[in-house]
Deep mutational scan, measured.
Amino acid sequence: NRRVIAMPSVRKWAREKGVDIRLVQGTGKNGRVLKEDIDAFLAG
């Protein structure tokens, strides 16, 4: 159960899209999950 680094707005975006943010690979600094990462995860 790893800790995910993400801005609150990104966490909210993931929740709205029904995405478990822990499954998303972050591409930002220090592995931070970005809004673009959520979109890419949804795109496959």
Score class of each variant (00 low, 15 high):
residue 1 N to Y: 05
residue 1 N to A: 13
residue 1 N to C: 15
residue 2 R to S: 11
residue 2 R to F: 08
residue 2 R to M: 10
residue 2 R to W: 08
residue 3 R to T: 10
residue 3 R to H: 11
residue 3 R to E: 10
residue 3 R to M: 10
residue 3 R to Y: 07
residue 4 V to M: 06
residue 4 V to T: 08
residue 4 V to C: 08
residue 4 V to K: 07
residue 4 V to H: 05
residue 5 I to R: 08
residue 5 I to S: 07
residue 5 I to W: 06
residue 5 I to E: 07
residue 5 I to D: 07
residue 5 I to A: 06
residue 5 I to C: 15
residue 6 A to S: 06
residue 6 A to H: 04
residue 6 A to D: 03
residue 6 A to L: 04
residue 6 A to C: 09
residue 6 A to G: 04
residue 7 M to R: 15
residue 7 M to W: 15
residue 7 M to F: 15
residue 7 M to Y: 15
residue 7 M to E: 15
residue 7 M to A: 15
residue 8 P to D: 10
residue 8 P to V: 09
residue 8 P to K: 13
residue 8 P to H: 09
residue 8 P to L: 08
residue 8 P to S: 10
residue 9 S to T: 08
residue 9 S to I: 08
residue 10 V to W: 03
residue 10 V to K: 02
residue 10 V to M: 03
residue 10 V to N: 03
residue 11 R to Q: 08
residue 11 R to K: 10
residue 11 R to L: 12
residue 11 R to I: 13
residue 12 K to Q: 12
residue 12 K to E: 13
residue 12 K to L: 08
residue 12 K to H: 08
residue 12 K to F: 06
residue 12 K to D: 14
residue 13 W to H: 15
residue 13 W to I: 15
residue 13 W to N: 15
residue 13 W to P: 11
residue 13 W to D: 15
residue 14 A to T: 01
residue 14 A to R: 01
residue 14 A to M: 02
residue 14 A to H: 02
residue 14 A to I: 02
residue 14 A to V: 00
residue 15 R to I: 14
residue 15 R to W: 14
residue 15 R to M: 13
residue 16 E to V: 11
residue 16 E to N: 08
residue 16 E to Q: 13
residue 17 K to N: 15
residue 17 K to S: 09
residue 17 K to W: 10
residue 17 K to C: 15
residue 18 G to Q: 07
residue 18 G to S: 06
residue 18 G to I: 03
residue 18 G to F: 05
residue 19 V to C: 05
residue 19 V to D: 00
residue 19 V to G: 01
residue 19 V to H: 02
residue 19 V to R: 00
residue 19 V to Q: 00
residue 20 D to P: 06
residue 20 D to Q: 05
residue 20 D to M: 04
residue 21 I to W: 05
residue 21 I to A: 02
residue 21 I to K: 00
residue 22 R to W: 09
residue 22 R to V: 06
residue 22 R to Y: 09
residue 22 R to M: 10
residue 22 R to F: 08
residue 22 R to I: 05
residue 22 R to K: 11
residue 23 L to T: 08
residue 23 L to G: 07
residue 23 L to F: 12
residue 24 V to S: 00
residue 24 V to F: 02
residue 24 V to T: 02
residue 24 V to G: 00
residue 25 Q to I: 14
residue 25 Q to F: 12
residue 25 Q to N: 12
residue 25 Q to V: 14
residue 25 Q to P: 13
residue 25 Q to K: 14
residue 25 Q to L: 13
residue 25 Q to D: 10
residue 26 G to V: 02
residue 26 G to A: 07
residue 26 G to D: 01
residue 26 G to M: 01
residue 27 T to E: 02
residue 27 T to S: 13
residue 28 G to P: 00
residue 29 K to M: 11
residue 29 K to V: 13
residue 29 K to S: 09
residue 29 K to G: 08
residue 29 K to N: 10
residue 29 K to Q: 11
residue 30 N to T: 04
residue 30 N to Q: 09
residue 30 N to F: 12
residue 30 N to D: 12
residue 30 N to M: 10
residue 31 G to D: 04
residue 31 G to K: 06
residue 31 G to H: 06
residue 31 G to P: 01
residue 31 G to Q: 06
residue 31 G to M: 05
residue 31 G to Y: 04
residue 32 R to I: 08
residue 32 R to Y: 06
residue 32 R to W: 08
residue 32 R to E: 15
residue 33 V to T: 04
residue 33 V to Q: 02
residue 33 V to W: 01
residue 33 V to G: 00
residue 33 V to F: 01
residue 34 L to D: 04
residue 34 L to T: 11
residue 34 L to W: 03
residue 34 L to R: 08
residue 34 L to C: 09
residue 35 K to V: 07
residue 35 K to D: 03
residue 35 K to I: 10
residue 35 K to E: 05
residue 35 K to C: 15
residue 36 E to S: 14
residue 36 E to D: 10
residue 36 E to H: 11
residue 36 E to Y: 08
residue 36 E to T: 11
residue 36 E to P: 07
residue 36 E to W: 08
residue 37 D to Q: 01
residue 37 D to R: 00
residue 37 D to K: 00
residue 37 D to H: 01
residue 38 I to F: 02
residue 38 I to Y: 00
residue 38 I to C: 00
residue 38 I to N: 00
residue 39 D to N: 11
residue 39 D to S: 07
residue 39 D to L: 09
residue 40 A to E: 10
residue 40 A to M: 12
residue 40 A to Q: 10
residue 40 A to F: 10
residue 40 A to Y: 09
residue 40 A to D: 12
residue 41 F to K: 04
residue 41 F to I: 07
residue 41 F to D: 02
residue 41 F to T: 04
residue 41 F to Q: 04
residue 42 L to E: 06
residue 42 L to D: 05
residue 42 L to S: 07
residue 42 L to Q: 06
residue 43 A to K: 12
residue 43 A to Y: 10
residue 43 A to E: 12
residue 43 A to W: 09
residue 43 A to N: 12
residue 44 G to E: 14
residue 44 G to D: 14
residue 44 G to A: 14
residue 44 G to Q: 14
residue 44 G to M: 14
residue 44 G to V: 14
